[in-house]
Design a binder for these strands. Structure first.
Lengths: 120, 120
DNA sequence: TTGACTCATACCCATATGGGTATACGATGG
DNA sequence: CCATCGTATACCCATATGGGTATGAGTCAA
């Protein structure tokens, strides 16, 4: 088996920087492909391909207007990502918490006793 | 150019489900490779390879203990991911906010006057 | 109808991924 | 010192990615 398809889920789709850029551009509202092409400085076919991936995972929606296709952001599929991360967010906060505890302990017994743990 | 290396950043490293699993296992504390192998039901070399990727992006740290290598979680590299997502988090909340506003307006002037804006 | 414009798709290519299997390496125990 | 355990690495393979270029299809204006 090779790497999971980029269209597997939002995790994979969003791993690509260009696609994150595209989403960032869409935050402010609908954009036609040509506008995205211009702002990304990328070849039009590439933009279309990235948009396809984003469409397939539901991160964008399309609407035809004349000869333009307007892409719109749909942030919902990012939720799982955010939820998965929330666990870890707690952890990197906790790190400070733990540091506090350690500092408190150090102050409490300032007897110069060497810790058994090597300082990482 | 092919797809960006999995070791490019946390975005890419974490796109792989197995690697997310590994991180999830490490949340509770240090684990030896053999433990991870057992819990993941994956071949040992594969686990080692995934761990290598996680190490290279700084998501885990290693410590030798006898003939075991203990892997520990380091959540920091996930921060950028979380920060990037925070923008979108606002958006899917805003969706409700906007709905609230609309409902409020509807109640305020119940005069049957049609809004000029097409319903989003 | 023809030409111009916007966008999607079809190809071609180099790359490295993730799985598998075999093996090398360091540490430990007898 | 040898056997064994725990782990990393070397390969082999199929896959599809992302970039590039060329072209097809739809829409509009003259």
């Amino acid at each position: 088996m090779a790497r999971a398809a980029t269209t597997t889920d939002a995790f994979n789709a969003v791993a690509e920087p260009r696609r994150r850029q595209i989403l960032d551009l869409l935050v402010t509202g609908e954009r036609a492909v040509s506008e995205l092409v211009e702002q990304l400085g990328l070849a039009q076919p590439l933009v279309s391909k990235h948009l396809r991936v984003l469409r397939e995972v539901g991160l964008v929606q399309v609407r035809d207007e004349g000869r333009n296709r307007l892409y719109r952001l749909n942030p919902q599929p990012l939720k799982p990502l955010h939820e998965w991360l929330s666990t870890y967010e707690r952890l990197w906060d906790e790190r400070f918490t733990r540091l506090d505890v350690v500092l408190a302990e150090l102050q409490e017994d300032e007897d110069g006793q060497r810790s058994g743990d090597a300082p990482r």
